[in-house]
């Protein structure tokens, strides 16, 4: 069997194990998908009437941003899951087996697509309740969700690396919070902009803004906000795909290397 086929078939075995775990401990999935729902409701009702967005209700504008924030937060699930496996010695079991070196990570990131899809579905339903609609067509809508999932997948490789590196569930959760909050807030995710001074430049080139922009365009939630002139936001899908490529190219090899030496202490 070729090494790629081996990675995929071993990865499938690991993914199945992770999914069984979600089924056995559904509380984890329930509580972690509750927080994005809470975010939608809080933002929609607390900020909704105070942040004017030209040509579209804030609640509709918000959804693109909240989707991105949710999948980024969702990636901590990947990191926390790996950190937990490290502390419980399950990674050692895997590392002593003749399986592909990347399979644990391939399986983990794959099963987390299910997790992200679930939280996006629940959020979409919540969005529908507060007045969000997909105003384009079926194809565009599906395209928007696929781009979100693809970005989520890439980001879970970042957190896979973090999870293996720190190998503590608490540290993964707390540390990632410290860097996810600024990353998602210094962007167009929650406010149409412009942000003051250098923050605006950061926001314009922040991939979070591009993904949010791409999602809004795909769902038809942009209103009459003036077309962005900066290239990253004028071509949000292309810019997002470039970032996805960069993240995967860096973090897949980095995570696999970290996995191999993870317990080398």
């Amino acid at each position: 069997m070729s090494s790629v086929a081996l990675a995929l078939s071993d990865g499938a075995v690991v993914a199945k194990r992770n999914l069984i775990k979600i089924k056995r401990v559904p509380e984890v999935l329930i509580w972690t998908t509750m927080s994005p729902i809470m975010f939608v409701l809080l933002f929609a009702y607390v900020f909704g009437s105070n942040i004017p967005v030209p040509g579209v209700s804030y609640r509709e504008f918000l959804m693109g941003g909240i989707f991105v924030q949710t999948v980024i937060f969702g990636s901590t699930f990947t990191g926390a899951g790996l950190a937990e496996d490290m502390t419980k010695g399950i990674i050692d079991r895997f590392r002593s087996l003749p399986m592909a070196r990347s399979a644990v990570l391939v399986g983990r990131t794959a099963s987390d697509i299910f997790y992200n899809a679930t939280s996006i579905t629940l959020m979409s339903l919540t969005g529908l309740v507060v007045g969000w609609r997909i105003r384009t067509g079926l194809i565009e809508g599906i395209g928007g969700f696929l781009l979100l999932l693809l970005f989520a997948y890439a980001f879970s490789w970042v957190m896979a690396y973090v999870g293996l590196k720190v190998s503590s569930v608490e540290v993964v959760n707390n540390a990632s919070f410290m860097f996810i909050m600024p990353l998602t807030f210094i962007s167009n995710a929650f406010v149409p902009g412009p942000l003051p001074g250098p923050l605006q430049t950061f926001a314009e080139w922040n991939p979070v803004s591009a993904v949010a922009q791409a999602a809004r365009e795909a769902f038809g939630n942009t209103g009459t906000v003036p077309e962005p002139t900066v290239w990253s936001l004028d071509n949000p899908v292309a810019y997002t795909l470039i970032w996805i490529g960069i993240i995967l190219a860096i973090f897949i090899p980095l995570s696999v290397r970290q996995y191999n030496k993870a317990a080398n202490r």
Binding site: G89, I90, D92, R93, M99
Partner: peptide, 29 residues
């Protein structure tokens, strides 16, 4: 790795899986 088995404090079973699922998974791997 194809020729050895490891048990004890450095390796573990997955507590969320059944006994059968644990062994089946290891066999597949």
């Amino acid at each position: 790795r194809e020729r050895i088995g490891l048990s004890g404090q450095t390796a573990a079973v997955d507590e969320h899986l059944t006994g059968f699922e644990n062994l089946d998974m290891v066999g597949r791997l």
